[in-house]
Structures are given as C-alpha cells and as structure tokens.
Design a protein around this nucleic acid. Structure first.
Lengths: 176, 176
DNA sequence: CACCATTACTTCACTAGTAAAACACTTGTG
DNA sequence: CACAAGTGTTTTACTAGTGAAGTAATGGTG
C-alpha cells in the first residue's frame, strides 16, 4: 500500500541525494515527533490564548491541578520538561495573578511547595476542557484504529525515553 | 498485556479523578507527541550545541541544505514551522556568520531567496550526521518493530495535520 | 491606466527560555 | 561536632520567538 509521503519522507529522499550513505532512519520517528509537536503547538496555542493562558501557564496549572496537592519546583521542572529558571518565572507570574500560591515547606527549607488556588483551578478546568476539544478536532482526520496505533507507539517511545513516571513524593502531614 | 504506564497515562488517571466525565482520549496522542518532542528537544539541543548550532540554526541550515537550491523566506517559514519574524532573524544571523546568503529574486521583488554557502553546507553536513547518531542512541530502547510502528502512525498524523508536502516552487532559470 | 486588495517580508516591542552563577540548605564523612 | 560535598531554588544576562504594525511589491478590476 503506497501512501502519499509526509514531509519527513520527502526530506529523507532529499538527504539521500546529498549524502547517500547516511542512515536517516531515525528521522522517521524523531523528525516526525518534532514536526508534529511543532504543528500541534502552533495550532493549540491560539486556543489557549482564547482562554487567557499561554502554553507555559497552561502546562503549569495543568500539572498542579492534576497533582491534587502542592508540588515542589523541582518536581514541576520534570513534569513540565522545563528548566528551573523557567519554572521559577512561571510560578512567580501566576502567583501574581492569584492562580497559585507558594507554601513554605517545613521539612526542607530550600524549597517551597506550589499549590493551585480555587481561582486557578476554575480557570484550568475550563481551559483544559477547551483544549481537549481542540485536540479532538485536530485528530479528526485519523480513525480510531490509527489513533490507537500511534498512541501505543508513542507510549513505548515515552517509556523508552523516560522510564516509568516517578510517583509524587509523600505530602508532608503539615505544611504551613 | 499490561504495560508500565507512561506519564500521560498517569496524567489521564489523575484527570479522571478530577473530572470523571471528561473525554481525555486525545491526550493519548497529542499529550504524548508534545511531551516526547520536549524530551527529545531537550536532549538533542545539547548535541547541536557541541556542533556550534542551536535548534533554530540547525533547522534553517537543514532546510536549505536538503532543498538543494535557494528558498524563499515564506517557504522556510512552513518548512520550519516558524513565524516570519523568526525566519528573518535566523537568516540575518546566519548570513552574518557566512553560512548562508541572500540572492535577489528577479521574478518577485518582494522576496529574496536564501542559499546555503559552502561553509554552511560543510557545517550542517557534520552536524546533521552527529544529530542522527544522537537520535539513534535515543531510540535505542525500542526495537525495530516498535520504531516502525510508531513511525507509520506518526506519518499518518502528519499527513492528517498537514496534507502532502508542497513541492518546491520552480527555480527561476536566472537568479542574480 | 488608476486604484484597491492582497501578498511577502521586515521591524518593533515585548515575552518566555536558558546556562551559569549565586545563595541557602541538607546530607555525608571523619 | 566541623567541614565538605551535594542539592534545591532563584537570580542574572542574554537569546529566540511572537503578534502587530510597517513597508514594498504584485495581482485583479473597472
């Protein structure tokens, strides 16, 4: 079954002419992930904008919301695949908007824990639902079987790259 | 066959507790693409740095190199999934480094075409090979079958999102 | 041809991200 | 216990990206 080529197939063909001996097979996965990610981000970021959030803010509030309890900046870094400096900035700005707050960690004074506010939870709940809807629309060109196939493969890839997700550290019994 | 969950499965489980009626199935694809992309980028960008290029520069030189002929800024935008302002900046900086040059387009004076220099081609050839090697290492945790499966699914996704790639516009017979 | 709509690109003002440095705290070792 | 090594986070200086505005050119229409 011959398929219309996607842009990565086309690119591989071009590289073959330039450097015929080069093994470009990794592009089949990596090139496609990076490109699909860029396209999806470009399209979904505008939807988030309508909800008053950018990608960074959305990711932070999502991570906090689904964690269900306060999270350390270090853990946020890895949940969001961001640098410490980026996380610090994001937390500061959303704290100023009253969407989250910092709570001192009595058990480790190098750190504070970040907790979403009620206002923040309301905002992310709405934005998240809206985002899911937009995602579904973007995936509408694929049938269920195709979506499940790529989802399974991507899960393999993530496990291969990251291993299994670390459980959240135990919440201290008292935080003030 | 029950698999160790990846972070997106875990996240979906968390959302199910917060909003049980929400259909989060799109996260299986979109969430994973975005996350895998972020992880891959984080890891590969350091490799590119060793070759003296950042992601933006790498993408631009790659696009030019594999095109084999001068490209308009507008086409570079879509090849790289970047805004016009970003492309302008990238072109300016790499031109200053002598890695590419701008050629006037006699057929449309709103535009110039961007051509990679010999120096630029040497640099990207080495960087590209190094990048492929790093990609292969990152994919080493997956077997061939798994890689082919996810590659196929991702190709479907890209075609669904972007359609088939536009061919390069004909090269004018004379450019000066 | 004159004029208007559209297109292609650049400029501008601002924001988000990063590595490295700085600082404070925690843990390990003798 | 004292000190060194390690860890967690923030600060800093800088860079890359963006939307909107600006500018020039092209194409369409009467």
């Amino acid at each position: 079954m011959k398929r219309t080529p996607d842009i990565i197939s086309a690119a591989r063909g071009q590289w073959k002419e330039i450097q015929p001996e080069l093994d470009t097979s990794s592009m089949e996965v990596v090139g496609r992930v990076l490109r699909a990610g860029a396209v999806l981000r470009q399209r979904l970021d505008t939807i988030l904008g309508d909800e008053g959030l950018n990608r960074a803010e959305f990711d932070l509030l999502s991570a906090l919301r689904r964690s269900g309890e306060p999270v350390t900046p270090g853990r946020l870094n890895s949940l969001m695949v961001a640098s410490g400096a980026a996380t610090t900035k994001r937390v500061k700005q959303l704290a100023e908007r009253g969407l989250l707050e910092r709570i001192r960690d009595r058990h480790d004074r190098r750190s504070a824990r970040v907790r979403i506010t009620d206002h923040g939870a309301e905002l992310i709940d709405r934005a998240f639902a809206r985002n899911l809807e937009a995602e579904r629309e973007l995936l509408a060109g694929m049938n269920t079987k195709q979506r499940e196939a790529v989802a399974g493969g991507l899960a393999e890839l993530l496990r291969s790259l990251e291993g299994s997700p670390a459980p959240a550290p135990p919440a201290p019994s008292q935080l003030e």
